[in-house]
Amino acid sequence: MSASNLCGIFVLLSFSVFQCFALNDPACADLLQISPSRLVVRYEDPASALCTITQDAVDPDLFSWEASTGHTLISGPRNRTWKVDKVDQWDMAPQCYSNFLVKNEDVQCNTQLKMTVYQPPDSIQLLAEMEGDMVEGREYTFNCSIEKVAPIQDLKVRFYRGDTLLDTQVPNETTGLKPQSAAFPLTVTAREEDDGSEVWCEASLDLDLEDRPVKKSARVRTSVLYRPRIQTHLDSKQPVSITEGDTLELNCTARAKPAPSYSWTIPQGLGHTLNTSVLILPHVKHTGNYTCTVQNSQGTDAITYLVEVKVDWLPIIAALVGAVILVVIVIGCLIFKAHYNQTRTGGYDLRNIFQSLKGASNHVALSNGSLL
């Protein structure tokens, strides 16, 4: 017998002394207490709740539970337990009821158990609208398809790229107690850094549970085509200085997908060096602009280096200094030689020394020390 029918019977039998209060009426708030106050149970799992009265019932036979399924257990004069072995209904609303003496009047109070029956998604799948490679700068949509989840109004869907949260979505104005299916779209703009990353989604029910049910989709690996971007540690605005005769090495390695081609333009009509990211020129001699162009199906990037070839004066200066030293040594030797010869003959003339520098090879020394 339902609590509402009980109210009707008692009103008819004793209208002057009995009052019937609606569900959760304030006058009954402290008389009936249900534990737990809210029950969250998975579909087809067992469930139970305890109803406790804070004062004796007028008639213990009218202290019980009313529910569409399950049974009531008496666990004491002030306790009634509702128990069901398997929750197989989506709209369950068990009520605890009892009659009390309130302000010298016999009244009946009813309290409904707040109950949520849930079911995690049967399946979840992330589908990409495109086929094959994505192209940098274009928009693409992923759909997270979720099958048979309840209650759908408590559903939260999250999208991730790797471990980075991209978006969180909830159903739009969708309610219901029974399982439903839904699809949630995510639109993204393809970027270079997304190449090779994995996109996935997860569905969870935002319920008062210690271990909330979460279901994750398989990961979708993305491939993004993008134009070349040259990576270099050199500042192209600053000249590259190099000594004449050294080996020039310039790097214009680029990130790109698909793999790019390289070409170099160098000064002095030396032509083009094709398909190499690193230009190596031994014994460089030419100052000017050295330009690298990188190209693939998505675009082009280029960089120009101003190379300044400088002469190394140190070897030249060293050679000149060496020559001067050699001349000084030669002059010193000639002066010494002239001094030595004159000392043996008793005199010498400095003019002869300088003349000897011009024609020393034509002079012949005699046995007495004189020069011819």
Score class of each variant (00 low, 15 high):
Asp88Asn: 13
Leu371Thr: 11
Glu244Ile: 02
Gly76Lys: 07
Val328Ala: 01
Pro36Ala: 03
Phe336Cys: 14
Ser236Gly: 07
Asp106Phe: 08
His286Gln: 06
Phe184Gln: 10
Ala182Phe: 10
Pro185Tyr: 02
Thr168Leu: 07
Cys252Gln: 05
Val328Gln: 11
Asp106Ser: 06
Ser37Lys: 14
Ala150Ser: 04
Asp88Lys: 08
Pro315Arg: 12
Ser48Cys: 06
Val294Phe: 02
Thr265Val: 03
Val224Cys: 06
Ser75Gln: 14
Phe100Pro: 15
Asp195Ser: 10
Leu225Phe: 03
Tyr226Phe: 14
Asp56Leu: 07
Ala182Arg: 10
Gly245Ile: 04
Ala323Lys: 11
Lys337Arg: 12
Leu73Phe: 02
Asp349Glu: 04
Ser263Tyr: 10
Tyr118Glu: 03
Val170Tyr: 11
Tyr160Ile: 08
His233Asn: 10
Pro60Gly: 03
Ser68Met: 10
Ser75Val: 06
Leu13Gln: 15
Thr243Asn: 13
Trp82Gly: 06
Asp85Arg: 03
Cys292Lys: 11
Gly369Phe: 12
Glu105His: 11
Val364Phe: 02
His272Val: 06
Ala338Val: 09
Lys114Arg: 14
Ser37Gly: 00
Ile335Cys: 03
Glu147Phe: 05
Lys358Val: 04
Gly299Glu: 09
Thr243Leu: 15
Asp246Gln: 00
Ser2Met: 09
Thr345Met: 12
Tyr43Asn: 13
Phe100Thr: 07
Leu155Trp: 14
Ile317Pro: 15
Trp65Glu: 07
Leu207Gln: 15
Gly271Val: 03
Ser2Asn: 02
Glu249Val: 11
